[in-house]
């Protein structure tokens, strides 16, 4: 029981001290779980980070479930995940209530219109950074080149997402199948 409470508290702390999520969390997780509490080793942390990135869902949540499960089984996984989610639920609910009440002021409306323009700029940059990372490969001299296969999949997915009403889920399943077929074909050539 004490152990479960500790799990909840640890992940509550990590949730509340994380801004952004994803990779920005790694130093925080390392400090709380490896150095301070010595629950897992750094290798295990990197392992579960790798798993968190190639499984569905929010990376932070996946990591919480994995560490919780390793410590205290299924219940541990659930408790750690709830700890991670609690700060979001609390903080966002309060902020949302506050904002709804302020929406009638024209100053707030102008500020929000400005912020929307800003979000568009930031999101464009997110897409640009993501494209640089996910559509390229490094050659022997460590230079980045476009990866033809990735660019093709990306272009096909974009056309489907932007110009057809095909649901997002279906596009992701198509892409997964394409990945397996390409791997099989590449394997055939190598053999």
């Amino acid at each position: 029981m004490v152990e479960l409470w500790n799990l909840y508290v640890a992940f509550f702390r990590i949730g509340i001290l994380t801004f952004g999520g994803g990779l920005t969390m790694l130093p925080m997780l390392k400090y709380e779980l490896v150095e301070k509490r010595k629950w897992i080793t750094e290798d295990v942390l990197l392992d579960c980070y790798a798993i968190g990135q190639c499984t569905p869902g929010i990376i932070a949540v996946n990591t919480a479930t994995f560490v919780g499960y390793k410590r205290k089984g299924v219940l541990g996984g659930i408790v750690a995940t709830l700890g991670m989610a609690s700060p979001s639920i609390l903080i966002i609910t309060v902020v949302a209530m506050f904002l709804e009440a302020m929406m009638s002021y024209s100053v707030v409306q102008h500020a929000i219109m400005g912020i929307r323009g800003g979000v568009c700029g930031l999101m464009l940059n997110t897409v640009y950074t993501l494209a640089k990372k996910s559509l390229t490969k490094k050659d022997q001299e460590n230079k980045l080149h476009p990866d033809k296969i990735c660019v093709t999949i990306c272009a096909a997915a974009f056309v489907l997402a932007f110009f057809t009403p095909i649901p997002t889920v279906v596009i992701i399943v198509f892409a997964a199948i394409a990945g397996v077929i390409i791997d099989k074909m590449a394997g055939g050539v190598a053999a």
């Binding site: 997110t126 999949i153 272009a155 997915a157 596009i171 397996v180």
Partner: peptide, 18 residues
């Protein structure tokens, strides 16, 4: 292999959404 296919598609999905 599955994730090699999914990653570039996710980039496209986010681009289309943006």
């Amino acid at each position: 292999a599955v994730f090699k296919g999914i990653r570039p598609a996710v980039t496209a999905l986010i681009a289309a959404a943006v």
